[in-house]
Design a protein around this nucleic acid. Structure first.
Lengths: 357, 357
DNA sequence: CTGAAAGCGCTTACAG
DNA sequence: CTGAAAGCGCTTACAG
């Protein structure tokens, strides 16, 4: 659909209009309204007159004119791939942190959704026309091709990037430790046969969670069973269908003691598939998740999960981005290329303590 | 925190740069790159040369300069009150529809969060400096004072506004019918004592749901009990605390047959409070919600609820807004001031059929 | 200390 | 059919 071009907005009062009303130059008005504008000194009385005129005319500085001069839009761009046109709770949590922090810096946030990261280059370009001062990439799948599509003049910060990009700072959480601690918890509670419903193989976060899972098992001398590691995509539907299939294939055989799901959505789908089969959580099998999104509190029983501080991570992305925008690339050196947040184990009701019984 | 002003972006190539490289005027470049620019005709060969130069220089038209001339930013503003700094699933669904539709029109979306609607005036003003071409107000609490704070030159569309505003189009769903149908369903399934956990009294949507609830009861000759109508705020915490309090107060007395909650979050809190008290859903009492957000599918049992087409409503807000922006106020006459979407009953597993047993 | 001028990068209207 | 000029509304640097 073409961009509608006609029908420009009505002309709003300008600095000149205000100046005329107050009997001064546009420049004087600018100086007064922008506060501490360096050298200019204007008498108290004139200032009052100017402010009064501005108020009466309902004057607002035109943002486009300002941006043209300052080469700053005071706007941050958020880039995110939307699967099946459905925003999810991971996005919600991160975005929440972003807008919260952005308003602190008086920055606007505009959201750019992509269909996929693989041809992100052409989609990203659209934003490289001065409309944003910095970009936040949420969970980008970074390839060399993709990285070459970035504009070196626009500072970028990523969350949960799967690879390091030159000149870009990435914010992550310690997923490996989080996964390890979760599985340790399961083992401590007497679970032995721990299944892992992982995310799509190859993504760095997925592999880290698998590593943590294996690490915990090995430390306790539990031999990992091949058939207890099943990968799916990071969705409710993925968790449901893979769990359904697994149950069908292993009909009549023993259930695992516990199922460690790679995120809360998978866990939700998993619980649904179990419920369909008449298997109760946590009475018959324990289930736990990862992320601690809204979903984790919505399930019944509420989900034991690994909390990633998603909101705080979104906020930090803004903090770092603002530093880079304001101070230029000098700011980077102090920061390091990766910021790692610790995860927190959140115990709710979906894991049963077998050791107690 | 002050807006960082320093450190402007690096100078990007301009039309003049491209023109110089191609040996033509900036105007010629503009004409070629903008496509069908009316009168101007430039030879095929020159066009090619211009495009090549633009590509080589990696030219992007500067959005601020364009906006200054066109008085159009091609961005839409979304305004929303965030309670306790927590975005919710209602927002997620509506926002999803908004960004989906906006990308269709090649419009950017920027999100403005407010603390409260009551002093929205001062917060709205910030956006009246040409940075947006139109505004979408999500669930605004409209007062005369608020309405007077709107800029008549910026087209506005609201969703779930509680009152009609002159010159603004409001998008709603037929909440009254939705509520009535839900309660009719409960009655049909043999429930008699139906409790309603409503939203905050006074809001128009809340009253409509209450009206629908009462209407259904009356039509079946069921006398509404005063103590079965409890109001809370539209949150999980509200549903939990009010349900807890009710159970405590009515300890030892009969439970209602079913609880009709005014939204899914309340229903979730309600289910939690019931679970705490050892009351099972739907075995001991049926619970249903309203909205059909993500939450409704996450609960176990999944929630029977009234679906509002939130995503479609968000998309329609954009469609209408774009008509108003493009065609001016002429577009309004065709539309009417209120657009009402039908609701749909979604039956899941949280309501038990008593008539069958 | 004040004001007139130049310039940000684009598009539109108007001469040649 | 083409090109030089004016103007969008602001800010910054530079004369008086």
């Amino acid at each position: 659909m073409p961009i509608p071009r006609n029908n420009p907005r009505k002309r709003a009062p300008t600095l000149a209009d205000v100046g005329r009303a107050a009997g001064v130059s546009a420049m004087a008005v600018s100086a007064v309204l922008n506060g501490a504008s360096s050298s200019v000194r204007i008498s108290e009385e004139t200032q009052k007159r100017i402010r009064k005129a501005a108020k009466e005319l309902n004057y607002r500085p035109n943002i486009a004119a300002r941006a043209l001069v300052n080469r700053r839009m005071n706007t941050l761009g958020v880039f995110f791939v939307v699967e099946d046109h459905e925003l999810n709770n991971y996005f919600l949590a991160v975005f929440n942190g972003i807008i919260d922090a952005a308003s602190k810096y008086q920055q606007n946030v505009t959201v750019f959704t992509l269909d996929t990261w693989s041809d992100a280059k052409s989609q990203l370009e659209k934003a490289f026309d001065g409309r944003i001062d910095g970009m936040i990439l949420i969970a980008p799948v970074v390839t060399a091709e993709f990285a070459s599509g970035l504009d070196p003049n626009i500072p970028a910060v990523s969350l949960h990037a799967n690879a390091e990009v030159d000149g870009m700072i990435n914010i992550e959480s310690d997923e490996r430790t989080g996964a390890r601690e979760m599985v340790e918890l399961l083992l401590r509670k007497g679970h032995r046969r721990v299944m892992h419903l992982s995310g799509p193989r190859g993504l760095i976060g997925v592999e880290r969670r698998i590593d943590g899972y294996r690490e915990a098992l090995q430390a306790q001398g539990v031999k990992p069973e091949e058939k207890l590691l099943v990968s799916t995509d990071y969705s409710e539907e993925g968790g449901r269908s893979k769990m359904r299939a697994w149950l069908k294939k292993n009909q009549g055989l023993d259930l695992p003691d516990a199922i460690f799901c790679a995120n809360d959505s998978i866990a939700l789908g998993c619980i649904e598939a179990l419920a369909e089969a008449g298997i109760r959580v946590p009475d018959d099998v324990s289930v736990c998740g990862f992320d601690d999104t809204l979903i984790a509190r919505a399930t019944v029983p509420q989900l034991t999960t690994v909390r990633q501080p998603l909101k705080a991570m979104g906020a930090e992305a803004v903090d770092i981005l603002m530093k880079r925008i304001s101070n230029g690339e000098d700011a980077i050196k102090d920061l390091g290329k990766v910021v790692v947040h610790p995860t927190v184990l959140v115990e709710r009701s979906s894991v049963r303590d077998l050791s107690a019984s």
